[in-house]
Nucleic acid binder design. Structure first.
Lengths: 154, 154
DNA sequence: GATATTTGCTTGACGAAGCAAACACTGTCT
DNA sequence: AGACAGTGTTTGCTTCGTCAAGCAAATATC
């Protein structure tokens, strides 16, 4: 922290305090729980599922490594490692980028698409039961906007 | 997943979808951001900060390893390693449990308490700016209850 | 056109966390 | 007392992620 303005240091009131204490559940237990629920024959870890999901939605089912890394909230090296794992399973392949030969595109293979299709039901169920179901009746759109900004300082 | 009832498979409506997509920011970027903000001369990583915090609030500033692990959302082995790290810095010490010699208590040292006091301003500021500030005007108590249940299936 | 810098990605070294097996005591049953 | 099931914690190993350094192609500068 460079400057810590006085305002930032106002102590937490009770509701803020409860929220901050509960935050650990979302940051640490939720991802593990979702991941654990995605069991099955050929289990896709959450990180890999997310990568495949983004690829499946991209035009031509391909994305530049750096864009994919951003979408997956991973560092570039973390993304490389994930794609390597997926590549050895045949779920993704890498092809040089036409416009810029420094770049690579990760491309979803048919097999990758099939894995994704096989995984989404358990992923959807996990996300509903372990996350969404607990927010029933709340303003999800507003919540989404807040989540979207979490981690930033705007 | 053992059973995936049809209800759980209802596809996400747009608001649910936005929320789920934004969830990655809370699960992955928020913790790193908070951690990064807690810079300083003798920086405490978020995990270690959390452990010290729980100890400081416990009667006699001590807790059993397993209770501390639960409070910190860590596995038992993860907790052991965290305490070892803190112990080598002199911030915590381990003493055998009186009532049950199988058990150990992690005890906060004065130095540990001092470290915690030195760290909390930047921790508080980080939590406010990167998290709480984005939830202004929302029902924080309700949110806290929802967060508290995240990862569970009740 | 040759050299310097930047950009995109990969690799090496390493830390943090998990699981499962080992270990250390407790308490019970005979 | 002695074996043994049960509990609390640690250890060995693996996996995943980061950072820092490196390589190769692209872009800028002379």
């Amino acid at each position: 922290m460079s400057g810590t303005p006085a305002e930032a240091l106002r102590p937490l009131d009770p509701d803020e305090e409860s929220l901050v204490r509960a935050l650990g559940r979302v940051m640490y237990v939720l991802p593990r729980a979702i991941d654990a629920d995605m069991a099955g024959e050929r289990k896709l870890p959450l990180t890999e599922y997310t990568a495949l999901m983004h690829l499946s939605e991209a035009p031509d089912r391909r994305m530049r490594m750096s864009d994919l890394a951003t979408a997956c909230h991973l560092s570039l090296s973390g993304m490389t490692r994930t794609i390597v794992r997926l590549e050895t399973q045949g779920l993704v392949k890498r092809v040089r980028c036409e416009e810029d030969a420094r770049g690579w595109n990760a491309v979803l293979t048919d097999e990758g698409f099939a894995s994704l299709e096989a995984s989404w039901p358990s992923h959807l169920a996990a996300v509903r039961r372990r996350f969404l179901d607990h927010f029933q009746g709340m303003d999800l759109a507003a919540l989404a906007r807040a989540f979207e900004r979490a981690g930033t300082t705007d």
